[in-house]
Design a protein around this nucleic acid. Structure first.
Lengths: 198, 198
DNA sequence: ACCTGAACACCGTTCAAGT
DNA sequence: ACCTGAACACCGTTCAAGT
């Protein structure tokens, strides 16, 4: 019989799961295609135990990704309390870039793992919730064009994920985000018409 | 002795190489992680012949990528003859999106293959040449902000490569490119000052 | 109920033998 | 000079046997 879905794990199983996640985060950040067997070994569990917790590489990687991303996403609310909406939006994107660069290996691991099967549409992630929060706050003060969706914003900063962290990524990211912010401000109710009057 | 670098291939070897590329393009477009052994088999060559031509998966994928991308990149000059610079730029980005969606499998194959080793900085690709051409044409008529680099443009449209082709990608791509164009126009000499006057 | 680790399947890569 | 295909190494996944 399989495990009851809502029942708590036995304490040793719980510990095993946490150790796997801990080791996997470190290993995958260093090397996106670290062997799962190596992760299991370093976590001190057998192959079978690993697969009981995570049926495949994608399941492991997505769990780590969601956990890490949630931390950044959650900072959006905090930024909105400290800064005007447009500056909060920009500051949040800066944090996303910073996060992406330190976790570049993890981002590669995600792409490696998720390109295999079907494309997992994340739909309602913490990130899109955060984006929604920031966009609506800006809408309220008229600092950006109306009608922007979280999807729009995520696509607009998509270039961040194809930068290598080794380079002089900071000025490049800054130039990208400056461009995005200018695009967002174009057509804002508070800015007096479109950037190119007709 | 290895092969002389500039000497032409023997005709049968030449044919083999072309058949491998032909089969690989079709297979990788369908399935980004198609086994190299399957590609060799369908191309009618032995494993060794395959590896003589392409020492690893990355070498194969990059060659295909460059070949396919060159076609799109080369259309930039043609567009500039038919349209004003800003419309040519936008039309080129549309083509890039169209191309990316039909070749989504290939794009995944590239990520799969290149995330393994070091990050291969393509540096001077046909795409960055085309971007340079389009940006400078726009600079000359003052339709976009000055100083944009090909790298800036490539990053700005980076979101295209993280869209799934299954969806209603067309309106999403259009919204992204509209935003990018507005960002580019903000601060253009011909548009009368920045989008947000201080 | 959970764990271990050997066993199996599969794919990338090499290489001895052929033409 | 180029080709073939068997052989090897490695990693993901399963499963019989243990606690």
């Amino acid at each position: 019989m399989q495990h009851d879905k809502d029942a708590p794990l036995r304490s040793d199983a719980q510990r095993n799961r946490e150790r796997i996640l801990e080791v996997a985060l470190a290993e995958l950040t260093l090397c996106p295609d670290a062997p799962l067997s190596a992760i299991a070994r370093k976590a001190g569990v057998g192959q079978g135990t690993f697969y009981r917790n995570f049926p495949n590489r994608e399941a492991l990687v997505l769990e780590i990704y969601r956990h890490e991303m949630r931390q950044v996403a959650d900072s959006a609310a905090q930024l909105l309390e400290q800064l005007p909406p447009d500056r909060a939006l920009r500051a949040w994107m800066d944090r996303l870039a910073e996060f992406g660069m330190t976790k570049a290996g993890l981002a590669d691991a995600i792409r490696l793992a998720t390109s295999k099967g079907g494309l997992t549409k994340p739909a309602h992630t913490p990130v899109s919730d955060a984006a929604e929060l920031l966009l609506r706050a800006n809408d309220r003060v008229g600092s950006i064009r109306p009608g922007m969706t979280p999807d729009d914003l995520v696509l607009a900063i998509g270039g961040l994920w194809q930068m290598a962290p080794t380079d002089d990524w900071r000025p490049r990211a800054a130039r990208l985000l400056d461009l995005v912010m200018d695009g967002l401000r174009a057509g804002a109710p508070g800015a007096g018409g479109p950037a190119v009057p007709s």
